[in-house]
Design a protein around this nucleic acid. Structure first.
Lengths: 378, 378
DNA sequence: CTGAAAGCGCTTACAG
DNA sequence: CTGAAAGCGCTTACAG
């Protein structure tokens, strides 16, 4: 908690920027345009919405457009929403903005897709608190978003709030428990498979897995991928090479645990559940005098920016598709709300759009993740 | 970029969740309540807005409230906005969601404050692109946010977009170039001062500063704080103890540079511009056989979660007030828009509210940052 | 090709 | 204490 100081470094910039009076800035309306153009409001509406075909003369149309531009007209979303029962707004619900560095990337992807499709994001954080979630959701509903993105902090099974029932919704970085709500999440199995296979290709014979508490989806499937890759590479599975850390029970001893693992079972390659673990393994290996990328190969998951900047040699890692999940999630949502035709304008320039269109019949879509080759693998 | 796979891990959850038909879910309106209660819509409005004083009987009031609750009534924000010319919406503009782990924390603070004051956040990312900013802003204006938060990725001077002129706006983690728009940002001078003073207190005689490219506000003021603290501690300033890295020109050599600095000028304490630099210094010190927290003391800035979890011994660091900036920024904005009375309900339970009220006459507010004591200082 | 009018769900004088 | 009515800025049959 930081207190506030009115120190020498606080200065007063002079006069107040704006009064608290509620002078309505001259938001100009169709009426203004109609007056200036000498036509009716209805005509202005037609023109501004491009519905002039056989209904408005070329000349009138041009005049209206011209004046609208001069006046810097911006349609009043509230009026439009009220009349159309469509807000062109997407509710973005998340449990984790602020607690995860990745939430922002999902949001960015969602935002970019929304913008291209003419939507704006109403953002709300639930802190993972069901009671708060219910409260904010009911406020949000008043704004009548046309659909919702329900974004999680990491891949897990979730129950979508009942208030969203019947409203178009897409789960991102998570999976609807009941399999009814379309969900976009990383292909965890392939992450484990690709990482392990890469290590096997590098000639590793004793590939360890440093995992996560068991039970969460990401852990279960990455581990499966690890085992399948071993089998496909003709390597025998060895129980001793696997550890599923409970973060809590480890505390400061994660480093010690890593050292212990390395020195006792002597792996020549390690697939780490995430980059953070990989960073700890770096330290452990170094203390044991092992050269990473030569004596021992390491692969992480996340491509976490800060860790990436710190580790030497650079870490080979599997990147999680946060941006893609947010982006495709919104594409899917809009297709659901407005029909697949809504995506057509994008499809020529945007490979994601084509992908999403192909998957409209799948409720659960796993995104393949890319292995980024650096120098931590021999 | 991740491609998408329809692997064995993609399953079809069954029937489509919702049709694309636009059946309006029974958003119930005041009319519905009025009908059921046998009163007029106007009366319902009065009751639901708590304006019953001398205007509606206790009995009618209760009946209306009761029915509204049963029907799960949620006011239609679009209609209210249209009529009132007030959307109870705040536009949150940022250059960095997704590119900075801190943006989310600012957003979280803003969100929490907004919720308490009955506002909802309309979120928009500009990617630091002026053209895009202009475009998204004009769309956003259509939604008529009552005010704007203009949030930056790190403390810098900015020119607020001209489209925001005349609309209540608060800059967060940045400073309005012209000093006209209220701005909330970290007290950089104190960061440098407190960190350096802490090192001096620990008995350090040769305190180095590993900075950042010169020119940005954060660097200039932290450096000043460093120098002032040296002076106040009776320590002589030594040019050789200071380095202002240009990140770009350093690349992988940051570690080498740190090693070089430590071995040549032999500081016994180092104030690092941020935790990331501190992490590099950890490595360098260790390679030179120095025990951190004994042979050499280190202080960082940021309290970056991932780095904090990695460094041993734990890093003493100055925490940047991201949450507080977002929170207080919104408080200030609402006070600006709705008058200071709007904050009164909070003031009893919320120390931030009192603080903000005290600072209504300041355009630039620097927030004091907390030094978190860990074990990296002797 | 164009305009007048109704109506989306609210709030707020105004009349009673 | 209560209701009828106007109007916020749009869209869209409908009539001409």
């Amino acid at each position: 908690m930081s207190s506030t100081s009115a120190s020498a470094h606080t200065y007063n910039g002079g006069s107040r920027q704006q009064g608290s009076s509620h002078r309505r800035r001259g938001m100009i309306s169709m009426k203004d345009i109609a007056n200036q153009a000498g036509v009716s409001i209805g005509t202005v509406s037609l023109v501004l919405n491009g519905k002039t075909e056989n209904r408005v003369s070329q000349k009138t149309s041009e005049k209206v457009l011209q004046i609208a531009k001069e006046l810097n007209y911006e349609p009043n979303a509230a009026a439009k929403t009220l009349k159309m029962r469509k807000s062109n707004t997407i509710g973005f619900l998340t449990d984790s903005i602020g607690s995860s560095p990745y939430a922002g990337t999902i949001l960015l992807g969602a935002q970019d897709a929304a913008r291209k499709l003419g939507y704006v994001l109403l953002m709300v954080n639930t802190n993972g608190d069901r009671r708060l979630e219910k409260q904010v959701l009911s406020v949000m509903r008043g704004y009548q978003p046309d659909g919702y993105i329900y974004a999680l902090m990491f891949h897990q099974k979730v129950t979508v709030p009942s208030q969203l029932e019947g409203i178009p919704t897409v789960v991102v970085d998570g999976e609807d428990q009941r399999g009814l709500v379309p969900s976009y999440f990383p292909d965890e199995f392939s992450i484990g498979y690709d990482a392990t296979t890469r290590l096997a290709q590098a000639g590793c014979q004793r590939i360890a897995y440093i995992g996560s508490p068991q039970g969460i989806v990401a852990e279960i499937n990455r581990y499966e991928g690890y085992r399948q890759a071993l089998a496909d590479a003709g390597l025998e599975f060895d129980d001793h090479l696997v550890v599923h850390y409970e973060i809590e029970e480890l505390g400061d001893n994660e480093a010690a645990a890593a050292r212990h693992l390395i020195s006792t079972v002597q792996p020549d390659g390690i697939f780490c559940f995430n980059d953070q673990r990989a960073a700890v393994v770096y330290d452990a290996a170094r203390e044991l005098g092992l050269a990473i990328g030569r004596d021992i190969s390491i692969v992480g998951v996340d491509n976490e920016a800060i860790i990436a900047s710190l580790l030497i040699p650079r870490l080979t890692t599997v990147e999680l598709p946060h941006y893609a999940m947010g982006y495709q999630g919104v594409l899917r949502l809009v297709a659901q709300m407005d029909g697949v035709e809504a995506l057509r304008p994008l499809v020529a320039s945007d490979p994601y759009a084509a992908t999403v269109l192909k998957q409209m019949d799948m409720q659960a879509v796993s995104l393949r993740c890319e292995l980024l080759e650096k120098e931590s693998v021999a």
